[in-house]
Amino acid sequence: MTTIEDLLQQPATVEERKTPILDESSKREIRRACLTAVAVPGYQVPFGSREMPVARGWGSGGLQITLAVVGRDDVVKVYDQGEDGGVNAANLRRLIRSAEPVTTTTDPREADVIQTRHRVPEDVLVDGQILVLQVPVPEPLRGVERDMTELRRMHAEADYAKMWVSLYEDIVRNGIITQTTGYPCLVGGRYVIATTPIPRWDVPPLHQARFLSLFGAGREKRIYAIPPHTDVEPLTFEDVPFQVEEVVEPCRCGLIQPDEEPGAYLVELPGQTGETVWACSDTDWCARRRLEAGLLGEDAIDALEVDL
């Protein structure tokens, strides 16, 4: 029985067919769904989602897209919560490497395909790059409607009044829009999408982006897309500005300060006794900036590369 461990012993650059996760006709079918999604920005395209070696909800949709769109010698980055070394990212990365003749990186600027869960890189992505987002719940309207037939009708007729009412009610009850992550956005002026659970901080970079975003929901069997140069407008009222999570305290890396450019998405690290430290969520971006600032040695980078 071939184990994951065995797969890892194989060199990353073998030319012959590696241990497959998806057969070629499945990949073609998924690519077709991706093309449909690009052609109709924001529309949730149903597809015959395959069972993956990771559980439903663990990135099975993103994994299928990545496996379907990568070509020989593509460079792939996989990260989760902004962290390349997280357990889920590490697992997905080695699966992709075991199945496809690709190399991996942590630097999003070098990557052709970036598979991510919950984050968009702090770096500005450019033409030709593909961001693959793992989506647990693709339906932005589920909070206001459960019936799938009615949901289909609402999208078909662009009838989003119920969503607007929920935003109105939110402000009335709470004084603010309390939607946290996965903020609903209007894509290309037509379809409302769920921006996966990425934080609101990551929504503005999707607007008129130069890169292609592909959203894969394996469990719910849908794919949707934001093509390059497409409007992505967070749903909010004209007089209630869309708000992102701000830097409220300096980051422990010393390079991010409140009210200073560039900001970054920070996560809170509470200590045992109530004191809190803040850290950059995007670990690779942070490390590169620290390296430039002379705050981190080259050897640390080397150690990371070996592990990839």
């Binding site: 989003y160 109105y168 009610e169 009222f237 007089d239």
Partner: peptide, 26 residues
């Protein structure tokens, strides 16, 4: 009406459906 929604929210529904996007004016 949607009984779980406030009176204002119930009126906001046809207004937003008709394109109203200004919270204060709604």
């Amino acid at each position: 009406l949607d009984l779980r929604v406030s009176a204002g929210g119930n009126i906001a529904e046809p207004l937003t459906a008709a394109g109203w996007r200004h919270f204060g004016r709604i």
